[in-house]
Amino acid sequence: MQRRTFLIRLAAGVAASQLPSAQAARGGLRYLRPPGAQDESAFVANCIRCGKCGEVCPNRSIQFFGNENGFASRDTPYIIPREQACILCMKCGEVCPTGALARIPREAAPILAKVDMGKAQVNEDLCLSYQGKTCGVCYRACPLQDVAIRVQRLEQPVVSDACVGCGLCERSCIQLPQAIRVIPRHVTV
């Protein structure tokens, strides 16, 4: 291989690793910010990418962006609820130095008042309970049972406005693809 071709390929490879991928352009990534996060733009401006939120996360829910969500949110934390949902332990807010993640005590009232990662949405065409097969797994997985999610006859789930979007329902849904999904706050806005 000639030196010039080698250098050009090296430069192309480096550029590819440093630039946003096509997925970001399609907007195909559905991710949550950790609990207590400020709105998306303030969060990106305040997060210094220290990674402590991920380090203290006992459930290993928090991952970090490469370039797939654009350069601006590189190295910021996110959660894919279907892979590993948030257990609302609120440790990430404790270690966040900049207030990008608010410090919220681990009690039902402040969590309901301040955490807003998104809101779960049931797809009745996929949900087993709505299809006549009693399931109710999402209801049982919910840490805010009977507040964020209720069940009707045949364990059909109904999500209320109190839902904080932790994603444990989506994580536990036994249907493939999942019949309940968290719609992130920054998408619904």
């Binding site: 733009s41 990106v44 990418r49 220290c50 990674g51 991920g54 970090f64 350069f71 949110s73 190295d75």
Partner: peptide, 24 residues
């Protein structure tokens, strides 16, 4: 509106990448 210096500052990168490489 994003802390871009974090992406070009070697000690910050090393700390992060060691965590990514080992734990993630």
């Amino acid at each position: 509106g994003s802390v871009v210096t974090a992406a070009i500052y070697p000690p910050a990168i090393i700390g992060r990448e060691l965590y990514y490489g080992i734990a993630l």
